[in-house]
Design a protein around this nucleic acid. Structure first.
Lengths: 286, 286
DNA sequence: TTGATGATTTCATATTGTGCAACAAGTTTT
DNA sequence: AAAACTTGTTGCACAATATGAAATCATCAA
């Protein structure tokens, strides 16, 4: 997948001010408009025209015209009384269509219920998005366990099992911004994760040890008593397309030789193998 | 949500030729570009520049510029060797963000595992999209049951339980195109669904009986031996925002007074009640 | 009733989008 | 190996739209 997010182009995630813009090779007004959509998507909820315009540093009349086109396309909706704008159901449709296009998601989704049943643990599927490690699907275990994790949840890179799996196996370039931010924070406040050496040397060591283990695990990170183990789904180049994570309560379950970890890694290996076979050919319709 | 899909505007679903266009009030080039994205989203898989241009009835150079902007925004990706274009991961992100914005989806998603556990049946959540009744989430029951249903699956309006629930409770205007097509097909081949009278009078009767029942059911529709019951999640105006469907194998489970149907309707009533309370106010972050 | 605020539209002007042709890159045919 | 073909990409002259300030419209509060 061609990725120019690292440039100053207005990717859907990057809503920096529209100055010193590198040409996308496309249309300038389309680039600006998609930046508006990105800003709306990044927002916490419905936004007024005025707020969107302010956030995008554009005159309201300009933003209004962009939103009118997005409204017509169904990517955006507008609340009748308040006039506020939000994402529309066609944005959801687009997301579903995109999800359907990535075979590894279907392959992983198919196997997650069995993994949950055989391990008795909650299973997450995450991809690396613009904001970082993003949960796109989960299968909740039957055991009574409270979690506020929802679709779209972004997990930290260095302090979550999921993030660490990406750190170990994902292409490094897209990780750099997030890595820099998190490493700086851990340098400033080492008590947040005393087991991590956020220095460049320490991160190299962490990378090596994660690779050697073939999976990542953390204990008591988000909610005391919860443990997590994560393994990558690799593409034909050995890079992480996605990460599957098991969440449970028994620390013994995330030991390297524990049954759940073995099944997790086997499942990821199966998916990785399936996907490698199809690389280069048109994905079959599922 | 403002919905002008029925006009000739290039909604994300409608990729009709760009002639006799009603102004969206936005930008013409943005409208055209979003039409290209819609065409790509509707496609079965990766498409070449030439094919997209032909499908959109545009010169390749024009389409190429639009795609360049979408590439920069991450909504589209391009395969290195074949040069084919497909939906990118940021389209998926956008969909997840949209999903997070609709509280009824979160409310339904929260309750689906419990409904699956208490009924022992597979649970689907569907919204009405441009192509029709679209599955956006499901919780598969533990019983060994094969289904090819995936995210994005579109169910028929008149011959599926889910579709019938939408038919009974959704605003009628968006249903009309699909209804017309299906009614015509059933008129031409009544053996497809002998229990349905597709005449206008018959459809009025069907509507009334579904409303009276408060839920829809079908038996042996897609896979012989499978039964389904569906009920709507209503908004404050009593219109269907979504439909929840139970799928199982025991015909007794979809009788009006069966426990699963009662729990299905109770769950939908709970969600409908929750959502009604929040109508008009800004949705709280979940 | 008046004033304030935000959304939407008008209009003169600035700026970009367009389509054909040329070019680049890769594949197929001879 | 060379020529021909196909597809993707870019240059450029011209056509057409996008733009932003201001005006207008709609709603709400005092």
């Amino acid at each position: 997948m061609q990725d120019i997010q690292t440039s100053s182009n207005p990717s859907l995630a990057d809503s920096s001010a529209p100055t010193e813009r590198i040409s996308s090779g496309g249309l300038q007004s389309l680039d600006l408009a998609l930046g508006v959509l990105a800003k709306l998507a990044r927002g916490a909820g419905p936004m007024s025209l005025k707020d969107i315009a302010h956030a995008c540093d554009m005159p309201p009349s300009k933003v209004h015209r962009y939103l009118a086109s997005f409204l017509a396309a169904g990517l955006v909706s507008q609340a009748g009384r308040s006039g506020k704008y939000d994402l529309g159901l066609n944005a959801l449709q687009l997301g579903l269509a995109a999800m359907a296009r990535h075979d590894f998601i279907a392959a992983a989704t198919d196997r997650m219920p069995d993994l949950r049943d055989s391990t008795g643990m909650t299973v997450l599927l995450s991809v690396w998005g613009n904001d970082g490690s993003t949960v796109i699907r989960w299968e909740r275990a039957a055991s009574p366990m409270v979690t506020s994790m929802g679709l779209g949840t972004v997990l930290p890179l260095l302090t979550s099992a999921t993030g660490r799996a990406f750190f170990a196996y994902a292409p490094q370039a897209p990780l750099k911004p997030t890595l820099a931010v998190e490493a700086a924070r851990l340098c400033a406040a080492p008590e947040l994760a005393p087991e991590i050496d956020p220095s460049p040397e320490g991160l190299v060591d962490l990378h090596k040890s994660l690779r050697a283990a073939g999976f990542a695990s953390v204990s008591g990170r988000f909610i005391p008593g919860l443990v997590a183990a994560a393994a990558p789904v690799l593409d034909w180049q050995g890079e992480a397309l996605a990460v599957i994570t098991l969440i449970g309560t028994d620390e013994a379950d995330i030991e390297a030789n524990a049954k759940p970890v073995k099944e997790l890694r086997a499942t990821c290996a199966e998916i990785s193998a399936d996907f490698s076979v199809t690389v280069g050919s048109s994905p079959s319709q599922r």
